[in-house]
Design a protein around this nucleic acid. Sequence first.
DNA 1: CACTTGACCTGTCCGC
DNA 2: TGCGGACAGGTCAAGT
Length: 288
Amino acid sequence: MPELPEVETVRHGLAELLPGRAVHSVGHIDSPKSFPNADADVKEFLIGAKVLYIKRRAKVLLIELDTKHTLVIHLKMTGQLVFRGETAFGAGHPNESLVGELPDRSTRVVMEFTDGSRLYFNDQRKFGWIKLMPTLEVPNIDFMKKVGPEPLEADFTAQQFAERFKRRAKTNIKAALLDQTVVAGVGNIYADESLWGAKIDPRRLVANVTDKEFELLYEELRAVMNLAIQKGGSTDRNYVSADGKRGSYLDFARVFRREGQACPRCGHVIEKIRHAGRGTHFCPICQK
DNA sequence: CACTTGACCTGTCCGC
DNA sequence: TGCGGACAGGTCAAGT
């Protein structure tokens, strides 16, 4: 579910809501897998800790605490982080929220702050997780060491982008785009959308993609992700922002979840196939 | 090392 | 209406 634009939207929402609040208690409603830390660490470094900042790297959220510890959070496919304060967002604002009363049956962890507000970690499929670790150790996680550059950073160039793909020359361009060690944060939605924008067939071998095409793909990926952030991300069924709202990018999507509809560029019918292990949407005529 | 596939879970939707 | 199977936005561990 959440790709870079969705996680960035959650990060931005939490950054408005959490800093300055102190943790009062943490409840494991369900599934120790969702929050596997030893209780001793939680007691020592989480309970009583004050939230400093919320950061993001790739699709990972980082909640930095004043105990030199950080909550590292991955939402994977169906994770949600929803904040509820004194004025509940859910009740009375049905048009604002996709989630209702909390906790609900997919709530895995509840963090309560000293002012009574709460952060709910919901995750239908239980793939997501929260880990508490020393802030200085976060860069040493395997994932952090391997993950590629942030595609929206101002100093990330088209040349660097093209260069990153060389290691995956013998696979197809879609699988390479989804590879987090090539570029960070791209998932199935924005892979399909950016390949359509660059008029590249998702099945093409990386080795056969030209420099010119990489440059186009770079521009399209950044454009699509920036638009998605502006629209609060993409909500298919699960994803919501920190205040429980849907994202509206899919209203603007050109191919994702649009199989059977006309390609906005050439009018041919958009197809959906299974490719690189995932549902893949593309226009078989104008994506070469 | 590079590449592909299956596993992790729950829920939903589609065809019979 | 019931039931089996496929599929869902992400990452790893295993396999070749």
